[in-house]
Amino acid sequence: MRRYVIVWLGLLGIVALEVLVTLVRPPTGFLLAALLVLAFIEATIALLYFMHLRYERRVFGWSLVLAVLITVVLMDHFWFDAFRLLHQRLTTP
């Protein structure tokens, strides 16, 4: 249980860091990048320890993570294409 309490404290620390970065009021692009990096670190810790992925077979963990990553990459690729199509609309005469 002690290990999980340490992980919990670490996650609370990351939340505190997120709030601190926000209160510094950096440019939106930098803030978005910083918050995403911190959120991914937080999520990885939760996956490994709270959801016990660290103690499962490595092939199992990678199968799950790769499935989500491929989905996210595909979303990122095709939604940009939606923006391109938006600008290709013909104007009404």
Binding site: V15, E18, V19, T22, L23, T28, L31, L32, L35, L36, L38, A39, E42, A43, A46, L47, F50, M51
Partner: peptide, 20 residues
């Protein structure tokens, strides 16, 4: 339940902190 927690780790910074 941990997954619900994990999703909030993205919702809180992106919805709240990015819009202070």
């Amino acid at each position: 339940w941990h997954f619900v927690d994990l999703v909030w780790m993205f919702v809180f910074p992106l919805i709240y902190l990015l819009n202070v």
